[in-house]
Amino acid sequence: MKKSYKFLALSFLILICAQVNAQVKSDSVKTQTGTKIYLSATAATQGFGLDIKVAPRADFAIRGGASILPIGGTHVYSVRSEPTDVALDGKLNNAHIMLDWHPWINGYEWSKKVVVTAGAGYFWENGGTATVSYRGTYKYGDILIPSSDLGVLIGDVRWNKVAPYLGFGFEQPFPKHKFNIGFAVGTYYMGKPEATLTGTKFLAANTSNSAQFQENMSYYRFLPVVQINLNFQL
């Protein structure tokens, strides 16, 4: 929790610094007029999405959209030195609204592309399930129990549905071309997730591990975002 506060403080510090920096510049790019509208396709660590971006000014834009992140697949891990199959099934799908601000719009060529983004997402799909099954045959004396009869461990994690976002990126303000590419990094603050761990059949006793799993997952409060935007001016 202490680390989270540090992160938030640091992020605000970045914002404040950027604002101060912007105020000392007085070039005229900021004063360009005419609202521009963009359609942005995004590919990012939080999934693929589509945004509509409205920029009334060169240094400010508001955008809204949605992205989806299906998480799936089966992987092999070792749990207590035993090979296990881990099947993931989750979704982090969100609708979001973001404010983009170029604090150094009248600065150098590179600095005016810096965009600071703040906003929030509503995750209508906000978690997932990992199903862990033992690979191989469990031996109890002379009794062999195949993995299909042993049962599975099911870890379920659900984050908050509403999550604030903070980040920054690089993007040409009021680009001359219809198409342009932007880049952004940031993170959603997802909050402390609700996590449960249950077991079936011979693994049913693992419900007692649920509290430890909840504790472990409480460290997973941020959804990092590394994103590429393909913008098309309408």
């Binding site: 469990y138 980040g167 761990l197 693994l203 006793a205 693992n206 997973y220 990092p224």
Partner: peptide
């Protein structure tokens, strides 16, 4: 930013101190 995001997200193994009980 990247460091903050990943470090804060991955500093605890989800299976930490979980003893799988048969």
């Amino acid at each position: 930013t990247v460091l903050i995001g990943f470090v804060f997200s991955g500093c605890r193994n989800p299976a930490y101190d979980i003893n799988v009980l048969f």
